[in-house]
């Protein structure tokens, strides 16, 4: 056995300590440069007229809430505020919806890094149980992002029951995403960054997944499900999947979700209503609780998608607290009569 001399030992120890010190310094630097969410306007080459007037982001402040959403500007470009597509296979529903919104190129500039955030809550339900987003809806979005020129498309969620890898496989999402060339990412504990929520009324700070904040494009793909506290879990609530501490949000869930939505701004929300879960959400488990609607609802306005999908459950937008808070904070429009809705069939 080779002998480690005292000198060698000390040398190694000094090296190790040096590395640790450098690491510590870098760690200290990191806390100063806490990444902040960029407004949609900062995305390279984004053609959305809605954001053309937004000022360049400054690290010290977030865009004011009033600048966050302006669906009327989108409408002025000729696109509907919200698209509903019914009757058809999941991929056809998605393609029709995105086409009606102006095509994926409107959201995904060439070379952009894209994150698709489905709802993959547990590892023990296949997609038929409507606990997890339809795999073909997710897969088609990945495919279309690449067709629009995305440089990378990552798909991620943080399941609360079972491991992420198992959940990705069981839900069927991994297969469709990988077939489309996308990457399934198991979210890493170390990639959450402390994020201030200046516009937040209740939630002022939370740890958000770094990659989600840094991605050029965020596509939010929830599935319509019932939830005992939130009433329904749709687009706005789906973003809870990218924060570390979700349980503390339950104390004032509606406001906390709206607050979170001021810093995480998906470029596009596509609510999967191919199947919806009408009872025992969010994890389900009874096919009797599943209703097949063969519908997707898409918009750049996350408040609008959630408001519309509420009606598919026989509810009013205001029945969802977070929708009410979100509309009040200027995150989007919940009054369906004020939206230009394209109701199509695939």
């Amino acid at each position: 056995m080779p002998q480690l001399s005292r000198r060698d030992f000390l040398r190694l120890a000094a090296l190790g300590l040096g590395a640790a010190t450098i690491g510590g310094v870098l760690e200290a630097c990191k806390s100063v440069t806490t990444p902040l969410a960029r407004p949609t306007s900062s995305r390279p080459g984004t053609a959305a007229p809605a954001t053309a007037a937004a000022p360049p982001p400054t690290p010290a402040s977030l865009p004011p809430a009033t600048l966050i959403a302006s669906p009327t500007a989108a409408a002025s470009a000729g696109y509907p505020d919200l698209v509903v597509v019914r009757k058809g296979e999941p991929d056809a529903l998605v393609r029709r919806a995105i086409a009606a919104l102006g095509g994926m190129e409107r959201f995904v500039p060439s070379g952009a890094s894209v994150i698709v955030k489905p709802n993959v809550c547990v590892s023990y339900r296949t997609y038929e149980y409507a606990a997890t987003t339809n795999p073909w809806v997710v897969g088609t979005l990945v495919k279309m992002a690449f067709e629009a020129g995305a440089s990378s498309v990552k798909v991620m969620d943080y399941p609360y029951g079972g491991s992420a890898a198992d959940a990705y496989a069981t839900s069927g999402i991994a297969e469709q995403v990988q077939a489309a060339g996308g990457e399934m990412v198991v979210m890493s504990d170390r990639k959450y960054v402390s994020t201030q929520i200046p516009a937040g009324k209740w939630l002022k700070q939370t740890d958000v997944y770094d990659e989600v904040l840094k991605a050029d494009v965020l596509i939010n793909v929830p599935i319509g499900k019932v939830h005992s506290l939130a009433t329904l879990t749709l687009g706005m609530k789906n973003l809870m999947g990218v924060v570390r501490d979700r349980s503390s949000m339950h104390g004032n869930l509606g406001q906390a979700i709206a607050d979170l939505n001021t810093v995480i701004r998906p470029d596009l929300t596509v609510v999967d209503c191919v199947r919806i879960l009408t009872a025992h959400g969010p994890s389900g488990g009874n096919l009797d609780d599943v209703q097949k609607l063969d519908t997707v609802v898409a918009s750049t306005d996350i408040v609008a998608t959630d408001s519309f999908v509420a009606t598919l459950f026989g509810l009013k937008p205001d029945d969802l607290h977070y929708v009410g808070f979100g509309a009040a904070m200027g995150l989007g429009v919940s009054d369906l009569s004020k939206l230009k809705v394209a109701d199509l069939t695939a």
Binding site: H227, S228, L229, S247, H250, G251, L253, S283
Partner: peptide, 9 residues
């Protein structure tokens, strides 16, 4: 305090 985490889980 509203909390339904156990039911949700």
């Amino acid at each position: 305090t509203p909390c339904i985490v156990c039911e949700e889980m």
